[in-house]
Amino acid sequence: MTDSQKKWTGNIHLGAKVDINVVLSQLTQAFNASPYFAYNTMKMRVVDGQIQGYLEMQPNLIGNTAFQILHGGVAATLLDSIGGIVAMGELYQRAEPESLPEVMKKVARMATVDMRVDYLAPGRGQHFIATAEVLRMGRKGCTMRMLMVNDEGKSIAAGIASYAF
């Protein structure tokens, strides 16, 4: 396994019980190392044992200059990313020590298959927070529901995505 793959798999030891807090921390660090995330000021963080996507509004993220609102593609990226990282964490959380080699392979090859985004309100706010929940977890893929709210707690965008692994 390469060093890059180890980052995505939480550097866990085979045969050991998964410490989900360590894994979530490792997953967020791997996402936060992405140059694309850094460019768009997106961050993944663990809050109360759950991963959240976080984004501060910046001038370069404005999509509609007349209304000064967040670009829809930025919102979609944050939703897709939170759906994927939460799915990865869920795979680890459900893993038994003997299944860790297979779980690590699934995490390393996880990819978005399909995603739908509903834009619920204009993207106004000082910052945005995205969360995700599992709708269905299968042997070869999962379906996730994601939500992005602004700093006032107003729902800005929601999504449903399928991920294959």
Score class of each variant (00 low, 15 high):
residue 114 D to I: 03
residue 75 A to V: 05
residue 108 A to I: 11
residue 75 A to P: 08
residue 81 S to L: 12
residue 102 E to P: 03
residue 114 D to K: 08
residue 93 Q to I: 07
residue 100 L to F: 10
residue 106 K to S: 15
residue 116 R to Q: 15
residue 105 K to F: 06
residue 81 S to Q: 01
residue 94 R to V: 06
residue 114 D to T: 12
residue 114 D to N: 15
residue 88 M to N: 07
residue 106 K to M: 13
residue 106 K to F: 00
residue 108 A to D: 14
residue 95 A to Y: 05
residue 101 P to V: 06
residue 80 D to T: 12
residue 99 S to G: 01
residue 91 L to C: 04
residue 107 V to Q: 09
residue 108 A to C: 13
residue 105 K to N: 09
residue 115 M to C: 05
residue 80 D to L: 04
residue 103 V to H: 01
residue 105 K to A: 11
residue 83 G to Q: 04
residue 76 A to I: 05
residue 95 A to I: 08
residue 109 R to G: 00
residue 90 E to N: 15
residue 101 P to H: 02
residue 107 V to H: 06
residue 95 A to D: 04
residue 105 K to I: 06
residue 115 M to G: 01
residue 113 V to L: 08
residue 84 G to D: 04
residue 114 D to M: 12
residue 103 V to A: 03
residue 94 R to E: 11
residue 83 G to R: 00
residue 80 D to P: 10
residue 80 D to R: 04
residue 103 V to Y: 04
residue 108 A to S: 14
residue 105 K to L: 13
residue 89 G to P: 06
residue 114 D to F: 11
residue 104 M to H: 07
residue 85 I to H: 00
residue 92 Y to K: 04
residue 81 S to G: 12
residue 88 M to S: 15
residue 98 E to S: 15
residue 105 K to W: 01
residue 83 G to V: 00
residue 109 R to P: 04
residue 110 M to N: 11
residue 117 V to G: 00
residue 106 K to G: 03
residue 116 R to N: 10
residue 89 G to Q: 02
residue 99 S to F: 08
residue 107 V to Y: 13
residue 89 G to T: 12
residue 106 K to D: 11
residue 92 Y to P: 03
residue 108 A to N: 15
residue 78 L to A: 09
residue 111 A to E: 08
residue 109 R to H: 14
residue 93 Q to S: 13
residue 84 G to W: 13
residue 75 A to S: 13
residue 81 S to F: 01
residue 85 I to F: 02
residue 95 A to R: 05
residue 112 T to M: 15
residue 84 G to E: 08
residue 75 A to K: 01
residue 88 M to Y: 11
residue 75 A to C: 14
residue 77 T to N: 09
residue 118 D to S: 10
residue 101 P to A: 08
residue 76 A to S: 06
residue 104 M to I: 05
residue 112 T to D: 06
residue 85 I to W: 01
residue 99 S to W: 02
residue 98 E to D: 07
residue 97 P to M: 13
residue 96 E to V: 11
residue 112 T to C: 09
residue 85 I to L: 02
residue 105 K to Y: 02
residue 106 K to L: 08
residue 95 A to G: 10
residue 91 L to A: 04
residue 79 L to M: 03
residue 97 P to C: 04
residue 117 V to I: 14
residue 87 A to K: 01
residue 101 P to I: 08
residue 98 E to G: 00
residue 89 G to D: 09
